[in-house]
């Protein structure tokens, strides 16, 4: 069954989401990749505020292709999350509640997901054109100098995602592999 979820995530949503759940997300997402993460962490280290209020928000790891005429955005699929791992626990400590990317996270991120009660979702990599259809608004909100790596605020409707890491310690990548692996 596919659950519809309105962003930002509520505490109740986070408690109800379990590894393997398919969801359709609607509402506000912030977009940031590793270059933007580095700038955000540098800002925190200097005691400066983040370019947006991160409390309760969800970050999508993505760098779109340019919007063709008449479109909100170009292809907009997830990038590999591991590049954000070094920065993520600090952002979770600041109140980040959701992340969308693809690929396994570090043990430190998974521990922080449990500790700070957050959710890590995956979107289907390489389905960037399809995903772009669920993005109804896109605005650069910080670091425009980073080009395709700038921080964006998106409005999405029925953005498809799958829960990878939940607050209960579940991990779809580990569980899926275990379920389907055969003796070598």
């Amino acid at each position: 069954m596919i659950k519809g979820i309105i962003l930002p995530l509520t505490e109740k949503d986070i408690k109800s989401l379990k590894t393997g759940d398919n969801v359709l997300l609607s509402g506000t997402l912030y977009v940031a990749r590793d270059a933007a993460h580095r700038k955000m962490i540098d800002a925190l280290d200097r005691g400066e505020p983040l370019p947006f209020d991160i409390k309760g928000q969800t970050i999508y790891y993505m760098g779109p292709s340019p919007a063709p005429p008449g479109k909100v955005i170009g292809a907009a699929g997830p990038t590999t999350s591991v590049r954000m791992d070094a920065y993520t626990p600090k952002l979770l400590a600041k109140g980040l509640k959701g992340m969308i990317g693809k690929g396994v996270r570090s043990p430190e991120v998974k521990d922080a997901v449990k500790k700070y009660k957050a959710v890590y979702f995956a979107a289907v990599g390489g389905a960037g054109a399809l995903i772009s259809k669920t993005i109804i608004k896109s605005k650069v909100v910080a670091y425009p100098d980073l080009g395709p790596e700038a921080v964006l605020r998106l409005e999405v409707k029925d953005f498809p995602a799958t829960v990878i890491n939940d607050i209960f310690g579940g991990d779809l990548y580990i569980e899926g592999k275990k379920k389907y692996s055969l003796a070598q």
Partner: peptide, 25 residues
Amino acid sequence: AGRDALDAILENTRIPAKENIPLCQ
């Protein structure tokens, strides 16, 4: 879950050429 992912990937291949959006960002 694997079949769902493949369905999305196949659906994605039907969009790009007609809409000027590449297969992948």
